[in-house]
Design a protein around this nucleic acid. Structure first.
Lengths: 345, 345
DNA sequence: CTGTTAGCGCGTTCAA
DNA sequence: TTGAACGCGCTAACAG
């Protein structure tokens, strides 16, 4: 390991990354003054500040955040878990959250938790070791062990993309049950009576589906044929879903899909069979509001604002960071959703 | 669950997260034995290992990776910079890289660098403070300051999604010039002579475009009309691009697009004007091989394997981590690309 | 195979 | 406003 002695050797290989002490020496002040000049410039005399800044430039000093975090117990790191970012409605949430946090001086440790609470638990154990100052999860389904670890970590937690019973801490999302009900009511009001469902095997998608079916029952519509396919949602899932539905030989004139991606597959399969959309078959998807423009002109969809969820989650955390754990108001934001109906346009 | 007797206060608020020392006390061994039992189990007696593991369970110990990283100078963290992950060909690279790295015990610090080298430089300063063990960048365009910081950091670097002159270290990607040439040659061979181009203002996209134009010139085709639109690439960019091209009143029968997203917009605009695809107008996109199935049936495309780039980048880093900096073979992997022609199917 | 010693680089707590 | 001492939690290097 490198010693106190000045750097005389290996000048080209690795000039022994300068530390705060090196900067202090160059600036002619004490190490702690350097620390303060960098972290809380307002409490340092202007003269000192300038000397320090010059020395930082001269040495190419980069603060070691590992050491800083260890000493201060503040890592300036936020962990973010999403199931996946490929072909995914979560990508916008990730992007928006990162944008807001980095602007506030925080960095983001991304975790891909898949669609299982067990995978999330695994990841959690690893990530909490980095001592993040806060964490954003997707959904409200967590293992008991996860809940305990999270509680023990004592950091602010945001659950996103859902609203549920006994929150871990803060929540920013919408009710998947409400989505299911709205789907049923909207399509029923438009005159549809013969439904079918294609969904991937994701807990939240299934909840929307169950809620849809329940509301349909209340409206006097018989339980529709369901096709549940393995996650992740691919276009091919939609194609397969519609194929299997048609093979069942039950009549339907609208297909409710668990995502826009699945819906695209359903539409592609329908088109290849000569069905006219939405005349012969209407399709209802689910996805990001901002992607709505990209959709097939005949695809109706339930749209949520993934980016806004990200921004709101970030802001909830930042506020908690500043309040220093006392404000602790019970944040619980319903971001809602919209139904975009393309059948009429 | 209870400790020996040390922590008496605030039992409910925060049981003062157990440290390695607490575990050692419970297990009846020295702290360093706990450390070894966890990090290099093979060099510890089975008896000790079992005692330690039991104590870890009992205490709910989570190793502090900040402290570990500081002491060992190994953070088990890899930084990954991509321009964006929304509507993006990079999402698959991120996912694949993370999957491979997490399997090897590394976590990923994601940075969104936009499409500018300056933004990348900003990010770099912040991220290097976390002392990542390695870093993966997108592209080969970096500021002088970035290059210097990177060199000074002395960690393995992978440049992805491109191959270029004087690499920083390792490269995993393909030649954008080769793509441009291939586009020209493929379409020319198919009989097209009247080209047009819609591209967003992204350095790599512009290089493909320039190369296309140059090769066309060699083939005796006049310089095609170009529409360059601001990044990021949206479906709307494509619509606007085609509108503006048509307004120019120059004839063309094929449009080369900087991405599949742009291509979708071009096709949507074309369809809304009653053009038949690909008969009246052929469209060539650019995107991920695995997304090819999602494309419009008339959309041809240059396809690259984003996920494979991610995996290869991860493996290049892991190998370097293990070799301990001596192997240092000059990794430079051309992942190539494919042209998928849908006009004939 | 196990333990002891001595930091890693920084921020907190005091005092000046 | 500045500085000195101390320790955050862990691991490298040596010894036993």
């Amino acid at each position: 390991m490198a010693k106190k002695s000045s750097k005389v050797l290996t000048a080209s290989v690795n000039p022994a990354a300068p530390t705060l002490i090196d900067v202090a020496r160059v600036a002619g002040v004490s190490p702690i003054t350097v620390s303060r000049a960098l972290n809380r410039p307002e409490i340092v005399s202007e003269a000192a500040r300038e000397k320090v800044l010059a020395a930082v430039q001269a040495t190419g000093y980069v603060p070691n955040l590992l050491a800083g975090g260890l000493a201060s117990n503040r890592s300036r790191l936020v962990a973010l878990f999403v199931p996946t970012i490929v072909h995914s409605i979560f990508a916008e949430t990730v992007q928006a959250l990162m944008a807001r946090l980095s602007q506030a001086g925080y960095q983001t440790l991304l975790g891909l938790s898949g669609y299982s609470a067990e995978q999330e638990e695994q990841l959690l154990a690893a990530v909490l070791g980095r001592k993040p100052d806060g964490i954003v999860l997707t959904g409200t389904l967590h293992t008991a062990a996860s809940r305990q670890r999270l509680a023990q970590a004592g950091i602010p937690v945001v659950e996103s993309w859902d609203l549920g019973e006994d929150p871990l801490d803060m929540q920013v999302g919408f009710s998947h049950e409400a989505v299911g009900r709205a789907q049923a009511e909207h399509l029923h009001a438009r005159g549809y009576r013969r439904f079918a469902v294609v969904s991937v095997d994701d807990p939240r998608a299934l909840r929307r589906c169950r809620s849809l079916v329940a509301r349909l029952a209340e409206l006097g519509v018989a339980e529709p044929p369901l096709e549940i396919l393995p996650a992740p949602a691919l276009v091919e899932s939609g194609r397969a879903g519609l194929r299997q539905l048609l093979a069942r030989d039950e009549a339907f004139d609208v297909v409710v899909c668990s995502s826009d991606t699945v819906a695209q597959g359903v539409m592609a399969e329908a088109a290849s069979r000569g069905l006219r959309l939405p005349k012969d078959l209407a399709v209802l998807g689910f996805g990001n509001l901002s992607s709505a423009a990209q959709m097939h002109p005949a695809l109706s969809s339930v749209s949520v604002e993934g980016d806004r969820m990200g921004t709101l989650a970030a802001e909830a955390l930042l506020q908690r960071f500043n309040e220093g754990d006392q404000g602790r108001e019970a944040v619980r934001i319903d971001t809602g959703f919209h139904i975009i109906d393309r059948a009429t346009t």
